[in-house]
Write a protein that binds this DNA or RNA. Structure first.
Lengths: 194, 194
DNA sequence: TTAAAAATAGAACATTCGGGCTATTTGTAG
DNA sequence: CTACAAATAGCCCGAATGTTCTATTTTTAA
């Protein structure tokens, strides 16, 4: 109702479930889809994912009462173009549809907080400095690639004794005692320059 | 001007540069700060970062004409609570300030697109299935922790021969030939359940 | 210009690892 | 019930690794 009253666009279909929508879609071809996250049958997220896969141009706005991280996360991955709280007024909803149509991503401030928080959480951890030298970093890079000493030596034009010496120093600085530990630490703590 | 006309809040200060703001801040103590990203002297991002560090409660909205990933990224890291395009109308701006004050994160749809795109780019690569068995996954977990065969055997109450059998199977499935390679692949491709 | 840090190279030795095998027991899907 | 996959366990051997050393040359910082 909120949308039907708007003159800016036309409501071409309404569905209680995802299945019939997916079936009819090729015929109705809307520009923007408003999708409830919690649908009976196929979930809104799954439906969004399928829609996007088959009709990449369609803009999908997720309507949601949930704000738990997992749902938001999944919705993002599904390729939705907007995340709007269910209890918005008509005006906001109309705006959101317009924004989505114009290639923007309308997000309710409350949900945006979630997204940013997740984003920060996913950020590579701050490069705790173990003060590895340039050479040591270089060797570490190769260790992460799974090269053995001899291979590294060849690639860096070094004696394999030297490579072993560097590795030893790396182990000391990282407080580890094996290649796998060093690799794990390097990757988990993002010690290598991107 | 856009804001001064609003009755919903009070403009307690205006600054052309960040330095005097930082200096005055303890006296004016605003709830919400609107910050231009491209300031002369200390950049808006740096200023936001400092403000947040010293006064974590303050809500900062970045006003920006830039939409390049790097700027948006930095702003997020600086802890800003909103990212609004400079060319918004008064109404939107007032809303943004309210949202921020209420703990939300107002983001212009255009900028939100950027954020989500970055988010997706940072996502762990899709879990390509190497069809590792439960046991193999368990062993892989320990390999990532840097345990040697004997240690893993002890922890899982297995013969170290069994652990080696599992690692061989893991190597086959991941197409690798060493612990470090396996660890690298496991971490890079997120093969382990979080 | 001198002292310290980094990079290089080497040796010896015990331990671990990787790969090629075989084989039994336990689940599990038809 | 019965194949078949998974999990378990074992052996051998050569190659790679981890550790403990020493030592020379090159860079860098003071």
């Amino acid at each position: 109702m909120m949308l039907t009253n708007s003159r800016k666009f036309q409501v071409v279909g309404e569905y209680e479930q995802a299945e019939p929508l997916l079936e009819d879609f090729p015929d109705v071809t809307p520009d923007v889809v408003l999708m409830d996250i919690g649908l009976p049958g196929i979930s809104g997220i799954e439906a969004a994912s399928r829609l996007k896969r088959e009709y990449p141009y369609v803009q999908i706005i997720m309507l949601t009462v949930y704000d738990d991280d997992e749902k938001v996360f999944q919705a993002i991955c599904a390729g939705a173009s907007g995340y709007v709280s269910k209890n918005v007024n008509a005006e906001k909803l109309v705006e959101a549809v317009e924004d989505a149509f114009n290639g923007g991503t309308p997000i309710s401030p409350h949900i945006a907080s979630k997204v940013l928080q997740m984003f920060k959480d996913n950020l590579p951890t701050k490069n705790v400095s173990y003060s590895l030298t340039k050479r040591e970093l270089k060797v570490l890079e190769h260790l992460v690639q799974g090269d053995d000493y001899k291979t590294i030596a060849d690639k860096l034009f070094l004696s394999n004794y030297t490579v072993r010496a560097h590795t030893r120093n790396i182990y000391d600085k990282l407080h580890v005692h094996s290649k796998s530990q060093a690799v794990a630490k390097a990757l988990k703590e993002n010690l290598l320059p991107a």
